[in-house]
Amino acid sequence: MKKDIILAGVGGQGIISIASIIGYAALEQGMFLKQSEVHGMSQRGGDVMSNLRISHNPIASDLIPFGQADMIISIEPLESLRYLPYLSGEGWVITNTRPFNNIPNYPAIDEIMREIAKVPHHIALDADATAKVAGSAKATNIVMLGAASPFLGMAYEKIEDAIRFIFRKKGDKIIELNLSALRAGCDFANQNM
């Protein structure tokens, strides 16, 4: 099994935590992993992306070739479109629909949604609202991880275990909130595939 994943968002939206959770779950299953992150200048409110590759076989490149990503997980709708050149023909775009508008020329959201709808396989949900309902407005990124979970090629429980591990120092309450955010995202994806 091999999954090439593009994680996208705006600096500060927590794409690295998603990567750490998937990465931990992959390593626990004896998989190989390469994950390329963006640090530095663009973290200051600019567009950020991370290449995450997991596989049962050794991985060569840190970068995913164009047209070969299995999915784009984006915490922001405009950002989900920026990396379409990476997506494979069968690939999924899994995106939050809540805009992060910090630029003067941010496009109209319904036009963005129209473009997302053109991608053959996509899942779009308001992860901010879903996170709030699940009990933690901060868990938007975990909702997105949940929405991507059916496509990751690993058992759902492995992702839950990884969340328990990554948030182990934050206490049981935070772990539970994140697990329900994960579940909410996963349920949405399963109902909207």
């Binding site: 567009d47 164009f66 047209g67 990503a69 405009l78 479109l81 379409l84 050149p85 473009e115």
Partner: peptide, 20 residues
């Protein structure tokens, strides 16, 4: 051969870093 995904839609604008 080179490989491609989908083109970036025209409406996608840059999001440069900015002062908080």
């Amino acid at each position: 051969p080179d490989t491609f995904g989908l083109p970036v839609p025209d409406l996608v604008v840059g999001r440069p870093p900015s002062l908080c």
